[in-house]
Design a protein around this nucleic acid. Structure first.
Length: 405
DNA sequence: TGTCCACTGGAAGGGAGGGCTT
DNA sequence: AAGCCCTCCCTTCCAGTGGACA
């Protein structure tokens, strides 16, 4: 493409009727003005946090619910509103939100504390210090914080992931933090996707962290449609959506146990695809395509961020799934994996380690691995793909390229 | 009824990468 | 530089197990 062509391209792009008016509305971090079908939960959260306005420490709070049920959104919504009022009333309130699942940000106790300390302007190196040293630095940072906030609300999203990794000692340490702080109250809001997670936590810690609890049930298809309509009114030009598009997105998300986040993402990606194709409307096919693209991108992202051994494992899984219809098991996978190692010239990891990697892929939602017993023939994991088969070829070629195969 | 398979998953630890204090 | 202590990826060892089969 020459210079002239390109400038034409950009000009036509600008002249084109855009599908989106305000795409941000569909982005994950967007906080809408109203959150439909969550009034009850929001009122409850507001009630729990309100004592801040009287300079009292609010109770610790635990929020449960599956992904995409509005937990994070509601928590952010309520804390933002609270902060607004607090600022008006000159109340010294600081809200710290941390997603504990983010790799290399807060996926260990050390890094969680280091990250929170960062929020208070204290930089702590990503590795190297003893953990109690990190706590000490953190406490110092808060105590001599210039803003001198009186009340801190610590929102720990996906905290179940973190505690599963590092154990509940962490929670205990967090609950004890307040006693180390001068004139500063710290409240913790824990958010968990795992409804049963608190059952396996030390009872003393549990009672202190779960002074209040809120459950977020999944949305049903009708509710998701409401949510999609509400947002698409703001973000799309009128009449852009073909009939049934909203229903289709909602149905898809309802299949995924009422995950509104997925529905919104689906709609956004479908819009982007339609726009790129110079279409003026979003059709059913765009939704299908969007679904495929989302899955593919998710996996490709994993491919690029995970170590070689993960890539090799995934490639083995994809190869096996393609070859036979039957669900595959750990032993077969290990054999194929070792073959690939030979080809690539990498030292094979043990089956034990492979087992962990399989579990991680399961967590990432790329495969479904279920432990089953075949009686006489032992116990193993039954592994299935959790991504559309149509994306397999594409991902395989990405993998092979990355592995120089 | 017990056996026993093919693993699972916990525990401990190592060694390479790194940063702290002394 | 030494001596700690972190993380990350991995190994070794092993007890535990659901259920088809004898």
């Amino acid at each position: 493409m020459g210079e002239k062509d390109l400038s034409n391209f950009f000009k036509t792009y600008l002249e084109k009727e855009p599908i989106f008016i305000n795409k941000q509305v569909l982005q994950l971090n967007y906080t809408p003005e109203a959150i439909p079908h969550r009034e009850e939960q929001i009122n409850y959260l507001a009630g729990v946090l309100a004592p801040v306005l009287r300079l009292d420490k609010p109770s610790n709070l635990f929020i449960y619910g599956k992904t995409g049920t509005g937990k994070t959104l509601s928590a952010k919504y309520v804390t933002n509103q609270l902060l607004k009022i607090a600022v008006e009333k000159d109340i010294l309130l600081k809200i710290v939100y941390v997603n504990c699942k983010l790799k290399r940000v807060a996926d260990t106790e050390y890094r969680l504390i280091a990250h929170i300390a960062g929020e208070f302007g204290k930089e702590i190196p990503p590795t190297g210090l003893p953990t109690d040293e990190v706590y000490k630095l953190f406490i110092e940072a808060i105590n001599q914080n210039k803003e001198n906030k009186k009340i801190i609300i610590l929102v720990l999203d996906e905290i179940d992931q973190l505690v599963k990794r590092v154990g509940d000692q962490l929670l205990y340490n967090l609950t004890r933090l307040s006693s180390e702080l001068k004139n500063i109250e710290i409240s913790i809001i824990g958010i968990s996707n795992d409804l049963l997670f608190m059952d396996n936590v030390d009872s003393r810690v549990r009672s202190s962290l779960c002074e209040e609890e809120a459950l977020f049930p999944p949305y049903n298809a009708i509710q998701i449609q409401d949510i999609l309509r509400q947002r698409s009114k703001i973000c799309f030009k009128e009449g852009v959506l073909d009939d049934g598009v909203i229903e289709k997105c909602a149905a898809h998300a309802a299949r995924e146990h009422g995950d509104a986040r997925r529905a919104l993402e689906l709609l956004r990606v479908a819009g982007e695809l339609a726009e790129r194709k110079n279409k003026v409307k979003i059709s059913m096919e765009d939704i299908d395509e969007a679904e495929e693209k989302i899955e593919r991108d998710k996996v490709v992202d994993v491919v690029h961020t995970q170590p070689k051994q993960f890539q090799l494992t995934l490639l083995s899984i994809l190869t096996l799934v393609e070859q036979n219809k039957k669900p595959l098991v750990t032993g077969d996978l290990y054999d194929v994996y070792k073959d690939y190692c030979l080809k690539v010239g990498l030292k094979p990891i043990t089956q034990r380690r492979l087992s962990d990697i399989i579990a991680e892929f399961d967590m990432l939602g790329i495969i479904r691995a279920k432990v089953i017993s075949k009686g006489r023939y032992g116990r193993t994991r039954e592994i299935r793909l959790a991504i559309p088969p149509s994306t397999v070829e594409n991902i395989k070629s990405v993998l092979k390229e990355s592995l120089n195969l």
